[in-house]
Every structure is written in C-alpha cells, then in structure tokens.
Nucleic acid binder design. Structure first.
Length: 428
RNA sequence: GUGGCCUUAGCUCAACCGGCAGAGCAGCGGACUGUGGAUCCGCAGGUUACGGGUUCGACCCCCGUAGGCCACCCCA
C-alpha cells in the first residue's frame, strides 16, 4: 500500500485554517461590495496563450512556473492553471465586449492560483489570492482608490505594520529610454557584476535594482532612477496619484527600485510589505497599472489597474503575531439521551429544532448519558436537551450548561424557548 | 531551478558510543446503567518518510528518492 499525501506545495486546509481563510474571503468580498467592485468568477485554467501573451513569455511566471496541463491529444488546445487572475479577467473583458459597459468596470476575484515553483513557507503551488481590477479608467484617482482599498483590507484583517510602497515604472514612451540608460550604466560597470547580475542585465535590467547582493548596494544606489526619467505624462500622472494618496491620508513610501515581475505593468506600481517579518515572504500583495494588456489580449487600447493580495501570507502573518484567526461559533444546543441506544428519538428532536433554524448538535454514538453531556460541554453548547422517560408525556429536560440549571419543558415549547435564548446570547 | 538543514505514534518530542522504539497531549473505554469540561485506571496507536548499502546488530553511519524548512531565484 502506498501512503498517499497532498501533492508537493499544496496543503489540506483543516477546519481551523479553512475558517481563517473563509474569514479573509468574506472580508475581501464585503470590502469589494463596499467599494463597488463586483464579484467575478473565471476559470481555474485558460488557454496557455492567454498567460503567455498577457504575462509575457520571458517572465519566470510563464517560463518556469506555469502549471501546464498535459493535452489529451496532439491537436488539443494547450491549457494551463492560472498563475494569477489579471490575464483571465482581461480575457473575459474582451470576450464579453465589456468595453460597451459603462466604464470603468470594476471586478473582484477570490480564489486559488497555481505556480509550479519550489515551495517554502508562504510560497505554495496552490495559493489563495484576492484580486481586484478596475478596467477603463486612466486614473489617477482610481489608482489611489485601489491602493487604499488594499491597505484597508490589511487594516481590517488585523495585520499590523503593513507598509505601502509606490513607484512609477513609466510607459511605452519613457521606459525604453530608461532601460537603455540603465543598461548603459550597468554595462559600464560590467566587470564588477556577479554572474547573476550579468544575466539580469541581459534578460531583465529592472531586476538589477532590487538585487539582494550586498556587493551591488553601492552600484544600485548610484544608478539612474526611473522617477527621474519619466516622460512628462507619466510624471504628471505619478504626481497626481501621490496627491490623491495624500488626500486620503494613506501613508506610503516612494520606492524607486520597486519593479514588477510581469510584463504588462506600466506607470503606477505598488506593493504591500510587512516590516519586521520573519523569512523572505514579506511581500503581502502588490499591483499596478497595466494600460497595454487589454490590447495585448485582442481588445482596443484600454487603461486599467489592479492588485493581487496573497491570502495565505496574511494568514501566516496573523498567526505569527498571535492574532485569533477565526473562532468557530458554538452550537446553541446539544441533544442527548438517557437511553444510549435510542438514537432515533434524539435525532428526531434535533431535526425538529434544526428545521426551526436553530444550530443544534446531537450525539448519535450510543454512549451513556455522562459521556454525551461531556461532548456537549466540550463543544461549548449553551443548552443540553435531555431525552428520557418524560418524552412519553411530551416533555424533555432543558439543561442550561452554563448556569447549571435544569427544567422540564414541553416538546411543543422547546423551539420557542431556545430561539428566545439564542436571541439574548450569540450562537451559531 | 541552485545550495544547505531537517523527517521517530494524529500532534509535540525522547531513545547514551551502533545494542529490546518510549513519554506527554489528543482518541477510545472503564471507574460512573438518568446528568457535563476534572481525576484515576486501562486500551489502541510504529515497515523510525521511502528504497538500497555497510555491520553480528542500524532510529543512529553511507548513497538515492520523496516531503518540509532556510537562503538564493521568483513572487502573492
């Protein structure tokens, strides 16, 4: 017999963890509704080309980490599990002609994403994201709205010490110019570059800016800054985004070395970062403007902005600071019986109360009464309903487990009695 | 994808130099046949991650594989 286990980089969310994730999902949905971002559901997989085109074929996410599905036959379409939501949302926008909807359209997507990389704490092959997109508004106001929305999520989720980092990475006018300057600058210092950085210079020069190699620090510090190379339109936009953030009272830091790993970003880039976090998985979420993506996926030129927040990392952060992630609500009542074997009577009473909308559990294992009450206590039920001989007269014993009191109640009054008690306390 | 550390019961961990695999918690049962979270007693739970090798003898040493973690890479 082989011993089976969850695939590498995936995990079973046991009830406690699942409840924590559910809490975050509910918070995300309620915030989305509050801000006017409508919930959208898109497939967990797409045509591979949606990601290749949208995210960029040369990015690590596509090149190395894409979860490709084996085609069923030679001529079958090539599919891949979604590594993020933006490309799929934009694909849906184009497919359903949403450019004819009142602009902008604002969406919220919550769900699992998949990346085939080497797992670590806070880095999984299946992980959960809350994704928010606003398509059809060039900003800058919506840029600030989105950034503030993300920050609000962390505040209300209870994650302490989240910093907002912002930058502008330019557009198709000024970024190529800046990249040339950057290549020229690091090219001059080629002899001083470690091998990894040399490769970056070829493949993705922006990455040189957030190198973790201490030997690079001085060189990076003296490197030309994107913020000084922005064209006038981008500079004006960035300035206006910051003015909006100031007006909202959102504290942020301009981080000129902040770049994004996916090709589609332009102008505004931002990241939520946890200071003082253990381990390297400190990026809690990030996003930016992607004015070119709709066109890349076959639509007409449409400005857009969005973010993705990693819910697993929020869960991890909450656990680390010792925050209570989620509390399961205890049942109002627990049905027990004097005759262990008479499970039918117990189940019948429980079903009757459940039909009245009450949260009721019942002991169906034929344990003796003492054990049944033990279960009721352990699950923090407020009441125990004891079924015994008095049932022949249509009565049951209603025991208040918290107060330790007990009285005889007619079966016909039971639901009403409990409902009244449920109102004055809070039970599930 | 690269390098390093780790893996013993469901969980947290013991086991001397290579010499009989154990405890606490959790579970189940009894003490207690109609009254609860406590207590005491008992039961069950293991191919020591998996596969090889060395050895009279391997949880322990060596090799491989898998999984987890750390750093890098990347990113959420």
């Amino acid at each position: 017999m082989p011993s089976f286990r969850a695939p590498r980089g995936t995990r079973d969310l046991l009830p406690e963890t699942r409840a924590g994730l559910s809490r975050l999902e509910s918070l995300a949905r309620s915030l989305a509704a509050r801000y006017g971002y409508r919930e959208l559901e898109i497939p967990l997989f797409e045509q591979t080309a949606v990601f290749e085109r949208g995210i960029g074929e040369a990015t690590d996410v596509v090149e190395k980490e894409l979860f490709r599905l084996a085609p069923r036959s030679e001529e079958a379409e090539s599919w891949a599990l979604r590594p993020e939501a933006t490309a799929g949302v934009v694909r849906a926008y184009v497919q359903h002609g949403m450019q004819t909807w009142p602009q902008p359209v604002k969406f919220s997507v919550v769900g699992p994403m998949f990346r085939y990389d080497r797992p670590q704490a806070g880095r999984y092959r299946q992980f959960w994201q809350w994704d928010v997109e606003a398509i059809g508004d060039p900003g800058p106001g919506v840029d600030a709205e989105v950034i503030e929305l993300g920050r609000r999520f962390y505040v209300e989720a209870g994650v302490p010490g989240v910093q907002v980092l912002v930058n502008s990475i330019g557009d198709s006018v000024c970024r190529p110019v800046y990249l040339d300057r950057l290549k020229e600058y690091f090219g001059r210092h080629e002899a001083a570059l470690p091998e990894l950085e040399l490769r970056r210079l070829q493949v993705n020069p922006l990455r040189l800016l957030d190198s973790k190699d201490p030997a690079m620090a001085a060189l990076v510090a003296a490197a030309p800054r994107i913020t000084e190379s922005l064209c006038e339109a981008c500079a004006t936009h960035f300035e206006a985004v910051r003015a909006h953030l100031d007006a909202l009272g959102v504290a942020y830091r301009v981080e000129p070395t902040l770049v994004r790993g996916l090709d589609y970003y332009s102008r505004t880039a931002f990241e939520y970062y946890r200071s003082g976090a253990e381990g390297q998985q400190q990026a809690l979420g990030g996003g930016g403007r992607y004015d070119g993506l709709v066109e890349l996926l076959g639509g007409r030129h449409t400005p857009a902005i969005g973010f993705a927040l990693g819910l697993d990392r929020v869960l991890l952060a909450l656990e680390e600071v010792g925050a209570e992630v989620a509390r399961e609500t205890p049942p109002l009542a627990f049905v027990v019986g004097a005759d262990p074997a008479d499970t039918a009577a117990r189940l019948r009473v429980a079903a009757m109360l459940r039909a009245e909308g009450l949260s009721v559990r019942v002991e169906l294992v034929p344990r003796k009464l003492g054990r049944q009450l033990e279960s009721a206590s352990r699950e923090h039920a407020h009441f125990a309903i004891i079924i015994g001989d008095e049932l022949t007269d249509g009565n049951v014993q209603l025991k208040d487990l918290e107060a330790g009191t007990q009285r005889l109640v007619p079966l016909t009054e039971l639901a009403k009695d409990l409902a009244r008690a449920a109102k004055s306390h809070h039970h599930g």
